[in-house]
Design a protein around this nucleic acid. Sequence first.
DNA 1: GGTTGCATGTAAATGGTTACATGATTGT
DNA 2: ACAATCATGTAACCATTTACATGCAACC
Lengths: 183, 183
Amino acid sequence: MDVKTLCLGALSRGPASGYEIKKQFQEGPFAHFHDAGFGSIYPALNKLNQAGLVSCTAMEQDKRPDKKVYSLTPSGRLALVNAISQAPGADSVRSDFLFMLFFAHLLSARQVEGLLSDRVEWYRTTVARMKETACASAPERPGERFVHGLGIALYEAMADYIDDHRHELVGEILLMDQKAVAS
Amino acid sequence: MDVKTLCLGALSRGPASGYEIKKQFQEGPFAHFHDAGFGSIYPALNKLNQAGLVSCTAMEQDKRPDKKVYSLTPSGRLALVNAISQAPGADSVRSDFLFMLFFAHLLSARQVEGLLSDRVEWYRTTVARMKETACASAPERPGERFVHGLGIALYEAMADYIDDHRHELVGEILLMDQKAVAS
DNA sequence: GGTTGCATGTAAATGGTTACATGATTGT
DNA sequence: ACAATCATGTAACCATTTACATGCAACC
């Protein structure tokens, strides 16, 4: 899914400015499976506007810069439905964290412990924040609740696995370090 | 992590050709948290070679095209350790599957069911294949086992969540479709 | 006085994918 | 015959990231 489709999706939940769309990608409900920066969102919105898939209304604001609020047009909604009706491509995950852990034997036990602790903490606080987010709203969007719950389940599984196995891993690294010193 | 670092990581497990590195990314132990195609691997290996981080030996093969086998040099190993000692960037996940599910209310119950079934099946077969992969080997690389186990735990959590909640989601979509027809 | 948040945008640079080019062998 | 596997590489294309450019308001 390119940024244009992501914007269509964000706008299907209601009109928004580029700035607000960015926030949805960063902190909002999309945060956990897609991202985009200003440099791709603003050009995407302009192209969508030219193609007639969104409409744009300038809004003057008091003590704030002007806002351009975009809304999905009927053909925009159609384009979104069309895009999500194609067979999905494979998920792509790029995790420096897992790459680094994979080579844990090249790091010190301290480094590995730091990595694991930081990550677990991040998962725990993120899950707590996600659980607060009243997703009980939007009864007309069951997909949102499903994806939200799936995200929570995933992050909890991740944190649990790390907590259950971290001592094992760190212990082995510690042993290897001792042998290296002994030799 | 750019493709150069990925290649250094792959070569740290033993000498390999570009073709073999690609296989490691696709089917091997890296598959679940990074990927790269020929178009990025071959140029990366050439650059690494020029920088002296890997060395290259041409191998003539019987009834096969020639192979260029790359090995990590000492400075290459250092560069790898250096790269994995930096603080990791945030994981990036891009999942068309989750994006589509998020908008389940724009799809038919049949489409959603197909999406979920296909995905669960993929997770189940992938987990089965991963469990076969005897990761009991490589006692000198505990990180590999850890990451391998984490991948299995994640995929299982994913499949379990979908199985536990799919009927809920599909039921709601079905209800909405009926209401839409009734109106 | 400096940082953060609001708000939009452009341009250059990066990095990666896709398509192309080549060619032998093995299996259906 | 045709497709798949092994094997390497280049070039055009694409998308995204990053840096730059601007400016006001609120907070510390």
